[in-house]
């Protein structure tokens, strides 16, 4: 468990809304620009930030994020750069997590990664391709450094698996809204709400819904039943569609503001 992360969920709860969690890949379009984009997201109303660690084989990501991380890697973004983005983001006051496929963390060394992340002010890590069964060294290292672990649950998760996953989760539970990869969808399935209900039955940890969420209307729908709403590709798309960086920063902040308005429960 991590106090800053729990406090962000508690504050949103007190204000009668869901927490808005924004994802952005480090190093896109450049390392410094990604720091500026994330600051704009936070200024616009994102409560919690997920910083994507660019990886060569992002098999849970759709085309938008794939393209962004390919660009980040082509420009030479390193794990050390990601930690620099974490430090800059943490300095804004927003609880800051890293979202990373497993191999870059394992190759860095799990103990070293947890140590350096904590030193940079990071509060947690989301690991989309690490199951609790393979996570023993990771659980030890994160516990030792007060880093929150976020594992995923999916509509296909059995009740038994929901128990296994949530027992190892010390941050929030990331509920995948649908079966698929990241990227905006025009409509979300009804699977998300029942997944959150099933997850709540086995854990007291906050539950946040992500995958495919891009509009204030979708955010408002999810805010009815979840503790947090996760938006990722839509922020990347806003940057891709902007003619230059100043315009991108305005677009990202506007998007964050509109999405944040959607988090307020009626």
């Amino acid at each position: 468990m991590n106090a800053a992360l729990d406090a962000a969920f508690a504050r949103a709860q007190d204000e009668g809304r869901a927490a808005l969690i924004g994802y952005f890949p480090a190093g896109f379009p450049t390392v410094d620009d990604s720091i500026a984009c994330i600051a704009a997201m936070v200024a616009g109303g994102v409560d919690i930030v997920e910083i994507g660690l660019p990886y060569s084989d992002p098999l849970m990501d759709g085309p938008i994020i794939q393209r962004a991380v390919e660009q980040a890697l082509a420009q030479g973004t390193r794990t050390s750069d990601v930690l620099r983005v974490v430090a800059a983001t943490a300095a804004t006051g927003a609880p800051t997590l890293v979202m990373s496929y497993w191999n870059p963390i394992e190759h860095h060394g799990v103990e070293a990664f947890a140590t350096e992340l904590a030193a940079a002010g990071g509060v947690g890590v989301i690991t989309p391709d690490l199951t609790p069964e393979e996570a023993r060294p990771w659980i030890r290292a994160t516990d030792a450094h007060g880093i929150a672990r976020v594992f995923l649950v999916a509509p296909s998760s059995t009740t038994e698996r929901l128990g296994i996953v949530t027992q190892s989760t010390t941050g929030f539970v990331y509920a995948a809204s649908l079966m698929g990869v990241t990227g905006a969808r025009t409509s979300l399935s009804t699977q998300a709400e029942s997944l959150v209900t099933r997850t709540r039955a086995v854990t007291d940890r906050p539950v946040a819904v992500g995958l495919g969420v891009s509009t204030p209307e979708q955010v408002a729908d999810i805010a009815r039943y979840a503790d947090g709403v996760i938006v990722g590709s839509a922020f990347v798309r806003a940057v891709i569609d902007a003619p230059d960086m100043p315009a991108a920063l305005v677009a990202v902040a506007d998007l964050a503001r509109n999405l944040a308005a959607g988090t307020r429960r009626a």
Partner: peptide, 12 residues
């Protein structure tokens, strides 16, 4: 070996 996969695929 082992199984390093998204939770969504664990059931499969």
């Amino acid at each position: 070996g082992g199984r390093f996969v998204p939770e969504a695929l664990m059931a499969a």
